[in-house]
Amino acid sequence: MTAHPVPWKNGGGVTRELATHAEDGRMVWRLSLADITRDGPFSAFPGLARIHCIVEGAGHTLSNETTRLEARPLEPLRFDGGSPLDCRLRDGPCKAFNVIYDPARVTAGSEILVDGPVPAVEGRQVLFVVSGSLEGVDADRLGPGEGIVTGTAAGAVVTGGGTVVQVRILPV
């Protein structure tokens, strides 16, 4: 999972699309790593849901007239992707691992894993290494900033004082 930076949908920053899945010409889910370097509007994705997890930096606040969401390091945050939200950085730039998905087609959930075996889950899963390493899943070893989309993680282990974002994606 590596990609070149591309502008956000609203032009306010850059993201790296790590993986995507489409059916019938429509996005079902997308994984990305966003650089958030300034305050401003967040891109809206009407009809889609989001899981947003700060993997570097202190995070930020997303808000509008009726909503206030705190994006904190390694705390996956779920919200309506269509909500018009403004972003205010907490203490400088940050990076966020994002899952944007169509809730009419799939459900998604996220956990933070630390040193130890990767728990078995149903369906497709994404493993994104924040720190340390991930060993034993379709590759010898994955390091920080690397990840994999897989149907099974049997035998995979988070090592080296590691932290991994695990995302489960199941059909509705």
Rank of each mutant, 00 (worst) to 15 (best):
M1E: 08
A3D: 10
A3P: 03
P7S: 06
W8F: 08
W8C: 06
K9M: 06
K9G: 05
N10S: 02
G11Q: 04
G12Q: 08
G12I: 08
G12Y: 08
G13E: 02
V14D: 11
R16Y: 09
R16C: 10
T20V: 15
H21L: 14
A22P: 06
E23V: 08
D24S: 12
G25R: 07
R26C: 13
R26K: 15
V28W: 05
S32C: 10
A34R: 00
T37H: 07
D39R: 08
P41N: 07
P41S: 09
F42W: 09
G47N: 10
L48F: 15
R50C: 11
R50T: 08
R50V: 10
I51L: 13
I54R: 01
E56N: 13
G57K: 05
A58T: 12
G59H: 01
S63H: 14
S63T: 14
N64T: 07
T67G: 06
R68W: 10
A71F: 03
P73T: 11
E75R: 12
G81Y: 02
G82W: 02
S83I: 09
L85R: 04
L85I: 12
C87I: 03
R88L: 10
L89Y: 01
R90D: 14
D91W: 05
P93A: 15
C94D: 01
C94M: 13
C94H: 04
V99W: 06
V99P: 10
I100L: 01
A108V: 04
S110F: 07
S110W: 06
E111R: 13
E111A: 15
D115S: 11
G116W: 07
G116R: 01
V118R: 00
P119N: 03
A120K: 09
V121N: 12
E122R: 13
G123C: 12
G123I: 13
G132L: 04
G132N: 00
S133A: 14
E135K: 13
E135H: 09
D138F: 10
R141A: 11
L142V: 02
L142C: 04
L142N: 02
G145N: 04
E146N: 03
G147F: 08
I148N: 02
A154M: 11
A154G: 14
G155V: 05
V157Y: 07
G160M: 05
I169A: 05
I169H: 00
P171D: 15
